[in-house]
């Protein structure tokens, strides 16, 4: 085996999107990838749950989508690059989803970003 033998300590609040996550989240990510096309975004908006079922999302993934819960999507195997396309449907930016995941207001999140430059 040529996988690293050194134990790599977890990084708090950080999820490595690896092969296991990619298998777990395949349906969810495939659905979000489809949102590159405007006609697919429109079909999703028309009947969200029907669109989720068409892509074979499991209960956990459908619940996370229904609740717009980004951390729950990540726990269900979502990759943020594809999830960003889902967020885009609702006009949410990476700052909006950053605020949601950290439990801050968007204003506080923006201030936190800026403060790291000082």
């Amino acid at each position: 085996m040529s996988v690293p033998t050194e134990v790599e300590l977890p990084i708090p609040g950080t999820y490595m999107f690896d092969g296991r996550a990619a298998m777990k989240g395949y349906a969810l990510n495939k659905m979000c990838y489809s949102f590159n096309k405007p006609e697919n975004r429109a079909e999703f908006v028309k009947d969200e749950d029907a669109y989720c079922r068409k892509y074979g999302l499991n209960d956990e993934q459908r619940k996370a989508i229904r609740e717009r819960n980004v951390l729950a999507m990540i726990h269900a195997g979502g990759c943020v690059y594809y999830l960003a396309k889902f967020a885009g449907i609702f006009g949410l930016t990476v700052q909006d989803i950053g605020a949601q995941q950290t439990g801050m207001t968007v204003e506080a999140f923006k201030e936190m970003l800026k403060a790291q430059g000082e």
Binding site: G13, Q101, M112, Q116
Partner: peptide
């Protein structure tokens, strides 16, 4: 930069 997880917004100047 970091977009996802509870560490979203992390920057290391």
């Amino acid at each position: 930069h970091q977009l996802d997880g509870e560490r979203a917004g992390f920057i290391n100047k």
